[in-house]
Every structure is written in structure tokens, then in C-alpha cells.
Design a binder for these strands. Structure first.
Lengths: 232, 232
DNA sequence: GCTTATTGTGTAAAAATTACACCAGTATAA
DNA sequence: TTATACTGGTGTAATTTTTACACAATAAGC
């Protein structure tokens, strides 16, 4: 094998599609790039992977740097490795998505390569830098599919939420209207929603009951019913 | 940024879980390693990705080198990047699965790093080299899940097949018995199975009707019904 | 107390899924 | 030729799940 001397540079990166839900809209976290290439464009947050770092760790690090959050469930969904996806040369990127509760109090840290970070609705996204539009679309599709067999919606909502909020979130992700009565019937039939003795506050109309997601009941019910991911 | 001089070596590889179906059993294609580490162990076929090669291309190349097949549908399912997954140092691997029709006539080429290649039932796999057991399990689970919303079984069967063969394949993948009458009713109700005027030959019992998968009808029926992977 | 906006609820029809058993056809052996 | 062994092929009823659909109850703001 011929030995070649090259400037060492990590050839992989992580890109993150970070979903949040606010004001009835599904949003993702984007950064505005400070440098070329794609200066001033919006892009998915991401970074190169360090040499002594696993890819899961790297994904968590990036999310933490941006939001200050720890222990958020992230899920890898695809790896993009077309030869020319990056003008700087061959960079393979592993894409993750995360679901977080948007807290408008929390300050977003843009990091050294970005002018700023912002929440942007998934509905009227402009063209993103690199192949990030494709990455986003792929991630959004995985999220949709996953919603049908995992209770991921609860990671996007505040701890206490109303059934209407839950329904709006499903509608935002699936991009279609759902029937209110059937939706509530179905959700309640699962048995892992816990009705609280509390109601919405500060609304100028009839306040709705609050619910929370009962993780314990969920795992009891679904320990092996969804049955597909069982070990072999 | 400090410039470091290092011997260049690709840091990614591709590993393939190649499924086939033969004698009522689901099998995968394995190689027996010729060199250390893990000499003589069974492993998934894989290789480093060349610098001027996209990851999809690399996956196709590996499959082609092994089986001589072209144009096989491959699907990426996960990327494994734990720091210590490979004793040689940091190697991130992108895993693909492929579904092929086992043709016992076709010779398998083991390639320069393997003593031989073989089909092995998924049911009594020994421990595989590196983290390949984990990779296999992950891929098998994805295959199962995918079976429920895509007609992938047809890629594993010969062009003409009986309903019993189709059912055995489903049973092998899902690892459970299915009811014959309900299974047939359901499959036929989809409308993309074409009944042929032909029967099984050389069997020592009543010969079954042969069917084939009608790809055209399938896409007509499911153009947007499965609706989830639509563009945004 | 009137208006306005949203919550919360039930039933009937249709569709999909499940459970279940026996006769028909072909090859082989007696 | 007859019997045997084996697999192919078929229908119905009960249950469960999904869908479609409309109005009274409640709270806030005026």
C-alpha cells in the first residue's frame, strides 16, 4: 500500500435535525453560517467528529453546545456520503434527530461558526446549505413513520399538556387534519395518559384538562407488544 | 489549526447484511476471515470506502465483488461509530442490507481477505467478528419492520413462486406462524400478485399454482397511499 | 347576562382482523 | 389399482378496529 502524506482532517461530521413544537407549529433549530462556503445561509447544526469521540457522543455534544441540554433522546436516521456533497472534499455525515421542548427562556448559543441560531417552522423552509435540505426531508419522514409506533410526541410537549395540544402536534407532524373524537378515544385507549386534577390557566376560554405521559405505564403495556425490536 | 502529518487511511468502511432465502430458511452471506484480527471468524462482508467513491457505490461494489450481481436494491440501515469497535483504531462503518435471490449455481467469490464465503441460516449464527453480531441484529430488525409496509419479500423469492413459499418467507422473517387462509386472503387482496397459468414442477405432491409480483400494479396502487415518504 | 371561543362527549356503519376444518389433487408405495 | 401420505386450496362467522359525524357544557370578556 502506498503511503501518502496528507494534512489530517476528520472526514466525518454529524448533522442534527432538532425538532421542537411551539405555537401549534413544528419547528427545527437552524444556524446562520458565518463563513464560506454558504456564508449567511441557513444550515443544520453540526460539527466534525473528534478522533477520540464516538458518534453518539458527538451528536450529544453538538446538541448540548447549542441548547445547554443534556440527556436528550437522539436517534440516528441516515448517513450521507455522496462524493461531492461538501465543497471542501469528502466528508461523510451521520444525521441524527432530536426532539426537545422549546423553552423560549433558554438562550441558544450559536457557536463559533454561526452568526446565530433560531427556531424555524418546518413549513416554509428556505433552501439550506450543502445537502441539508435533503437531510432534513429524510429526517422528517423518519420522524413521521416513527410517530405511528412510538409515543415520541411526548418529548416535544411540556410535561403537562392538553389533548388539543397533543392533537395539534400529531397534525403538524403528519401534515393532516385528524378527527377530534376519534383521536381522543384512541389516545386514551392506550392507557398511558394520566389525567391530572389540573386545568389550563390564562386562557380566555373554557380551560382544558391537563394530562401527562405515564412512562411507567407505557413500558408495562408495551414491554414486548410492539414486539419487533426483540433480540434474536 | 495545527497541521499534523499522518499516514492516510480511509476511516470508513461499509458492511453488508445480505439476505437470501433457501429451503424455507432465511440466510445471510458471511465470509470466513483469512487474517488477524479475528482470523477464522465469520464476519459480514465489507470493505473500506475508497476516496473517490460514494458510500452507495461502495456498497454496490462489495456486493458485486462477492456475488457478481449488479443492480440489487440495497438499503442503508445504520452507522456504527463507537470509538473501540475496531482494534485497528477508529473506523466508522455504514451498514447496508440487500435482498437477493439465492442461486445455488452461482459461485461466491470470497475476495482477498477471506478464505471463503458461505450462506448461513440466521437462526443459529455463531458470534461474529468485531461488532458484526450487533450490526446483523439491527439490520434484521429493520428488515422485519420494513416487511410490514413494503413488498420486499419479492426480492428474495424466485420470479415465480407459490403462496406457500411466500408465507414461509414471511414466517422466517417475522419469526412466527401465520394462518394460511388469512395470509392468502390478505396477500391476494392487495391486487399486485399475478396468478400464472403454470404450476410447480418436480414435486412429489399436488403442485401449487405459481404467482409473480406485478411491480407495475404495485406502484399504481401504492403511488401515494403509503403516503409517508412523500416530498415536502 | 350575552357573546364568543373552545372543551368534551357517543353511537352507528364499515372495514379489517382473527379463528377455525375439511375436501381435492398428485406422487409413491404396496 | 388401490391405498397412503402429503400438500394445496377454500369460506364463514365473531370480534375488533376504524371511520364518520353534531351538539351541549363551560369559562372569559364585554
Amino acid at each position: 500500500m502506498k503511503e501518502q502524506l496528507v494534512k489530517f482532517e476528520s472526514e466525518f461530521s454529524i448533522d442534527c435535525v432538532i425538532f421542537g413544537f411551539e405555537a401549534g407549529e413544528l419547528k427545527i433549530l437552524l444556524i446562520e453560517r458565518k463563513n464560506e462556503p454558504f456564508m449567511d445561509w441557513l444550515a443544520l447544526p453540526g460539527d466534525l467528529v473528534e478522533n477520540d469521540e464516538g458518534i453518539e457522543e458527538a451528536a450529544e455534544r453538538i446538541l448540548h453546545q447549542l441548547t445547554g441540554l443534556h440527556d436528550v433522546h437522539m436517534e440516528q436516521f441516515h448517513t450521507f456520503g455522496a462524493v461531492n456533497r461538501h465543497p471542501r472534499g469528502r466528508i461523510i455525515t451521520v444525521a441524527y434527530y432530536a426532539l426537545i421542548r422549546i423553552d423560549s427562556q433558554r438562550e441558544l448559543k450559536a457557536g463559533q461558526f454561526a452568526k446565530r441560531a433560531l427556531w424555524h417552522s418546518v413549513n416554509d423552509l428556505p433552501k439550506l446549505a450543502f445537502d441539508h435540505t435533503e437531510i432534513f426531508k429524510t429526517g422528517f419522514n423518519k420522524l413521521r413513520r416513527r410517530l405511528s409506533y412510538q409515543p415520541i410526541a411526548y418529548e416535544l410537549l411540556p410535561e403537562k399538556f392538553t389533548l388539543t395540544q397533543l392533537q395539534q402536534l400529531y397534525e403538524a407532524i403528519l401534515n393532516k387534519k385528524l378527527d377530534k373524537r376519534n383521536f381522543r378515544k384512541k389516545m386514551l385507549s392506550y392507557g398511558f395518559l394520566k389525567e391530572l386534577d389540573e386545568k389550563q390557566k390564562n386562557v380566555s376560554f373554557r380551560a382544558a384538562k391537563l394530562y401527562k405521559f405515564d412512562r411507567r405505564k407505557y413500558s408495562k403495556i408495551f414491554q414486548s407488544e410492539m414486539g419487533v425490536d426483540v433480540d434474536i
